[in-house]
Nucleic acid binder design. Structure first.
Lengths: 195, 195
DNA sequence: GTTTATCTATCTACTAGTAGGTAGACACGC
DNA sequence: GCGTGTCTACCTACTAGTAGATAGATAAAC
């Protein structure tokens, strides 16, 4: 039996799925209130302003991501396996529609009109993810398990863009399988043995 | 001297730049009215509903894209040069901040909550772009000027995702140069002579 | 052990402002 | 005169956010 989530966690859960569907301006306090059966004012008790709510959401999202990526590095044997696990995570999310888009990718598109406190957190997530990918690629190259055509930082950026672009295409073409079709060859290219 | 644009064109111009900044829910009739110095009601005269306005905008955007891509195929010598010109177009847009994001890429992220008439048009743009890229890649492969690791349709999807992902990263990292840094190696990979 | 005070989470009811959209009048050009 | 475009003035629904009340839990004071 899963313990009942606290109200503030429930609020963040609903807000997350609404943001994934429609971005920062795509949901309202009323939407959340209706979804979990409380009043709008109760949400303001937990998160006084919308900017604070979304900031808290991004903080939680980043904390979970950091935890996930860290345990990935500890559990997965090789850098190649780590990359694959990262991609597999999103493949599963998009496949079963549980989290069919990265919250921060969604928000990043709206950066020009996001409250500063939210925008800077979204940028933080991008920087963190880029660093993680860079270090994995670097380790793989050092062990001669991955073949990089570019500097690790640049390969990391390319991979990240591929992942986010693939999420968008999967949505635009309404084809979850498209995500893997786009991302897998990129991984395969890195994994290919030195020729 | 550039002729003064018609009111409805001005409305679409402003709407486009507002959507590029914040998506479908990131602008209002009032924003447009303020920007071009007319009243909200006048906008409703030209575009009765918001869904119609954005639909017209996407139609115009697609028409311009089709024209641009068609003339690209006619003017540019080789398929490789055509790909490069396509990428250079976006490089310039992002560099001088004139159109630092594809309208349809922005809207595609919000597809789950877009009005149907808008969503289907956005999907149409994605399909059209994928077809154009596919045919260019196919021609390049036939002439042995491009080296494809995957089927042309799949290479087209990969390139498209790279372009959209690169737009997002350029925005998230607030670094226009990042777009080229991500996309150029992908083009270079295709252009590389057969080994 | 009862009283008093404080804290937490919720509620109802409200605010000012904004959303998209409408009705009807006015002016201009063909 | 009729169509086109713009205006003022308005509408209803919804926005984020606030005020103030209530109920229950916790804890300190006597």
């Amino acid at each position: 039996m899963k313990p009942v989530a606290s109200t503030s966690e429930q609020i963040l859960d609903v807000a997350q799925s609404l943001i994934v569907a429609g971005g920062y301006n795509g949901f309202s306090y009323a939407d959340i209130a209706d979804a979990i059966g409380i009043r709008k004012a109760s949400i303001h008790h937990h998160f006084p302003t919308k900017a604070e709510l979304v900031s808290a959401l991004v903080d939680r999202y980043r904390q979970r991501t950091e935890l996930g990526l860290k345990s990935l590095r500890e559990q997965s044997a090789s850098p190649a396996a780590q990359l694959q696990s990262y991609v597999d995570f999103w493949k599963a999310c998009i496949g079963n529609a549980s989290l069919p888009f990265c919250v921060c990718a969604m928000l990043a598109g709206e950066i020009p009109m996001l409250p500063d406190e939210v925008a800077s957190r979204v940028r933080g997530h991008f920087h963190h993810l880029a660093e993680w990918l860079t270090s994995v690629l670097q380790a793989g190259a050092k062990q001669h398990l991955l073949r990089l055509d570019q500097r690790p930082e640049q390969e990391a950026q390319m991979l990240m863009a591929a992942v986010h672009g693939a999420m968008l295409s999967a949505r635009a073409f309404d084809d979850p399988g498209l995500f893997a079709a786009i991302v897998e060859p990129q991984i395969a290219r890195l994994r290919a043995p030195v020729r």
